[in-house]
């Protein structure tokens, strides 16, 4: 064997040094973020657990019915009822809280990043490898800096989940906007649109299906990561899975796994309904109120002879 002594690049050590430097100098910031996130998740989950479980399932069922369809709503409610029945309701709520908070934050970061990528090709070339890195790095690795920065508990779990689920909304927002035809943008500019108007009235609406697909992906990745994050004390259904693995408890393992599947399916259907513009009960309700609002406004301002304003909502 030929062996040549080459000095090793200290990549890992550098990263570790960087994280330690961050902890040392920005401890206050991390504490603040940690407290804020703890507060928000705590508030949300205690709010959800304060409602009687069966009532909450019915409320969820109703909300799902509003944005999807009757069948989906009934099946979702039955699935959630099953989770309640096997006694994993509280864990489900804490997992749901984690996913919801993580996804909201991931979207707040991801969508603007995607928009920025369409605006600057330099930023896009930088972001591309960063996104690849974020998506292909084994998610377990994120747990280490998360624990170093935030300790054990819900917040490091959120942190790891956010990092893992940010790339899809970034990519799909970028993709959606770059696919908007040049002629549409040119049209808007030719009619006097400002940059902001081109974005808000042309690019975002036309990219909406793609962006919503990104939202759906984000939710799915969020769920898968939340389970992993339970290794560092994020709790919820993931913790049950971990416990069953360490005890070789097949019954508990299957039940908690099933609960995760049910939650994932429910969230997926909800996410899908965002991605596709369909005739849902919510749209009907919105249309109804919009029509009423327009009518009220018209009669107030006593504008006569405009019949079209009332038809706005009734167009689909």
């Amino acid at each position: 064997m030929l062996s040549i002594e080459l000095p090793k690049f200290a990549i890992g050590e550098t990263i570790e040094w960087l994280i330690r430097w961050l902890i040392y100098h920005l401890a206050a910031v991390f504490d603040l973020v940690s407290n804020a996130l703890n507060y928000v998740t705590g508030l949300l989950s205690s709010g959800l657990t304060a409602v009687p479980s069966l009532l909450l399932i019915i409320i969820f069922g109703f909300l799902i019915w509003l944005i999807t369809s009757k069948t989906t709503a009934i099946l979702s409610a039955v699935g959630l009822g099953l989770v309640w029945n096997i006694g994993l309701w509280l864990q489900l709520i804490s997992t749901l809280t984690l996913v919801v908070v993580a996804v909201i934050i991931a979207l707040l970061i991801g969508i603007p990043l995607g928009i920025l990528m369409t605006r600057s090709s330099k930023f896009e070339t930088i972001m591309r490898p960063v996104l690849d890195f974020m998506q292909t790095m084994p998610p377990f690795v994120y747990l280490i800096p998360a624990v170093m920065l935030f300790g054990i508990g819900v917040v490091p779990g959120l942190f790891a989940t956010i990092i893992f689920s940010v790339p899809p909304p970034v990519r799909l927002t970028y993709l959606g906007i770059t696919q908007v035809s040049e002629e549409m943008k040119e049209m808007a500019i030719a009619f006097g649109a400002s940059d902001w108007q081109v974005l808000s009235k042309i690019e975002l609406p036309l990219a909406l299906p793609s962006i919503m697909a990104g939202v759906n992906q984000c939710i799915m990745l969020g769920i898968s990561m939340v389970v992993i994050a339970s290794m560092i004390g994020a709790g919820g259904l993931g913790a049950e899975v971990m416990r069953s693995v360490s005890r070789l408890d097949l019954a508990l393992g299957f039940e908690s796994g099933l609960a995760i599947v049910i939650l994932a399916m429910v969230l997926d259907r909800v996410g899908r309904s965002f991605a596709s513009i369909k005739e849902t009960p919510a749209r009907k309700v919105i249309c109804f109120f919009r029509a009423r609002y327009n009518r009220a406004k018209n009669s107030k301002s006593q504008v006569l002879g405009i019949t079209t304003a009332n038809n706005e909502g009734g167009d689909t």
Partner: peptide, 9 residues
């Protein structure tokens, strides 16, 4: 415009 450039939404 040549290809109309109407907003489909």
């Amino acid at each position: 415009f040549q290809h109309f450039a109407l907003l489909p939404n």
